[in-house]
């Protein structure tokens, strides 16, 4: 049954493996900042907090297609991020508690929306939207190595893969442009503020990027993998090194290898 022939590889394993690798790469890099900021559980918090967005996306569009629901999910993730930052800053809550408060309330809100609307009678499978599965990322247009150079076949590449690649590009750009700022704000936000750098605002932007990346990765590879990938590579790297740059590189390497 598990014929390891070229076509199967190209159609099933390559897109899936590539998606996993890309997701892990983005998550591994971004996870560093979460671990450094003691917000490791952001991935988990987001995976719960997107529910109201999914339901709202469904209610607004009236369709079960993934697009609007993903938009809703991203909106909810961004909202959750803003609320978590607000809870930390204004309510002086420790970040774990802030995430717990925000995601549980948002999730409950989503549930009530689901029940109160007609969505409850629809077989709206939240897991489905959130739990992208590698196996279902297929590139059926592939027929051989030649397909890798064939524009028509390439156009048929799975959407999730393309989205992930885009996300990786965005992450890479962001990290490259703001390398020094990231370093400074991760290490000593107060000092950064003293230098006139808007650390809080920058942090918010960073967290929003992470939220968007998480949701994209949820769709492709599923939330549990995202949660793991956000923490494990960075934590492993943390054990191996004390140098910031080395940590980033290591985390990326580890996550790509895992993928």
């Amino acid at each position: 049954m598990t014929g390891l022939d070229l076509e199967t590889f190209l159609r099933i394993d390559l897109p899936g493996g590539l998606s996993a690798m890309l997701a892990c790469l983005a998550c591994g890099v971004l996870g560093n900042f979460l671990v450094l900021r003691k917000q490791s559980l952001m991935g988990d918090a987001l995976s719960h907090a997107v529910l109201p967005g999914l339901v709202a996306g469904f209610l607004v569009s009236g369709s079960r297609s993934t697009g609007p629901m993903m938009l809703g999910a991203i909106a909810a993730a961004l909202l959750a991020t803003v609320l978590i930052q607000a809870a930390r800053r204004l309510a002086r809550l420790e970040s774990g508690a802030a995430m717990g408060v925000v995601f549980s309330i948002l999730f409950a809100l989503g549930l009530v929306m689901l029940e109160q609307s007609h969505a409850r009678d629809v077989d709206l499978d939240v897991d489905c939207v959130l739990s992208g599965q590698l196996e279902t990322i297929l590139w059926l247009a592939a027929s051989g190595w030649g397909s890798l150079a064939d524009p028509a076949a390439l156009a048929e590449l799975p959407r999730q893969l393309v989205a992930l690649a885009g996300m990786n590009l965005a992450v890479a750009l962001f990290v490259a442009i703001f390398w020094r700022a990231l370093k400074l704000t991760s290490f000593d936000p107060d000092f950064a503020t003293a230098l006139g750098f808007r650390a809080h605002r920058f942090e918010l932007v960073l967290m929003l990027l992470i939220a968007a990346a998480c949701v994209a990765a949820f769709e492709a590879v599923g939330s549990i993998l995202v949660i793991a990938m956000l923490i494990c590579p960075a934590a492993t790297a943390r054990l191996l090194t004390d140098r910031y740059g080395v940590q980033m590189a290591l985390a990326a390497g580890i996550s790509a290898a895992t993928g």
Binding site: L4, A20, V126
Partner: peptide, 19 residues
Amino acid sequence: MGGDRGFAALRRRALLLGL
């Protein structure tokens, strides 16, 4: 809910890629 995601799949995939 966190949901069951493709861990098994990933494992197998990783193995396969390695192979």
